[in-house]
């Protein structure tokens, strides 16, 4: 909680005394474009969102750009957030994931990858471009069977559709869905 880098305007620890918000209260303030509420949002969730971005985007500089885009999007789109569909964090998480995946498909990112040395492991799994491969959610899914782990990786971390995965792996679409659903239910039990 609180200020990581105190700066006179955005994060004065004395003025910014409030360290916790009820989620509904936070959402109301964010929709009013309240600076302190947004400050709190960054200080509390910035790290978690940065964590998911880093698992999708390997390059640190680009990861920073994505994080900035994520918070700009949150700031601009907060009015479209509908709490009946899910928690604020879930909404922000999806913004972060989509922004990071979009970035991996940009020309700049593709070029930055070409400059990186490619390991033997990556050559044997050419589709998989891991960011933080043994960390966070990725570490959790490592406990799954290889085929399940790959499905989550391709769909969640790389953003491929079921159809694309089915064609790439040359397995029926129905099988992709079933295996992925099965992998996700296992993930739920692992997170509990």
């Amino acid at each position: 909680m609180g200020c990581v880098t105190p700066s006179a305007f955005h994060c004065n620890p004395l003025l910014n005394a409030k360290s916790t918000y009820e989620e509904s209260e936070l959402i109301t303030l964010l929709k009013q474009k309240d600076n302190q509420a947004f400050s709190y949002l960054y200080d509390n969730y910035g790290g978690a969102l940065y964590g998911i971005v880093k698992q999708i985007v390997s390059d640190g500089e680009i990861g920073n750009d994505v994080l900035q885009e994520v918070f700009v999007s949150i700031w601009r789109k907060i009015d479209s957030y509908d709490s009946s569909k899910g928690r604020l964090f879930t909404w922000m998480l999806n913004i972060a994931r989509n922004a990071a995946i979009d970035k991996t498909r940009s020309k700049n990112y593709q070029q930055s990858l070409k400059l990186m040395p490619i390991s033997d492991n990556e050559l044997s799994h050419p589709i998989i471009r891991p960011g933080y491969d043994d960390y966070g959610l990725k570490k959790v899914i490592h406990k799954l069977k290889d085929e399940q782990r790959m499905l989550i990786d391709l769909s969640y971390f790389q953003g491929f559709t079921h159809d694309q995965i089915a064609r790439a792996l040359n397995i029926p679409l129905g099988t992709v869905k079933t295996r992925l659903r099965s992998a996700l239910t296992q993930l739920r039990t692992m997170l509990k």
């Binding site: 990581v4 910035g46 790290g47 964590g51 998911i52 994080l67 964090f89 960390y135 966070g136 959610l137």
Partner: peptide
């Protein structure tokens, strides 16, 4: 994910 947080 909060446990996995990486400080920017």
């Amino acid at each position: 994910l909060m446990r996995d947080a990486i400080a920017p």
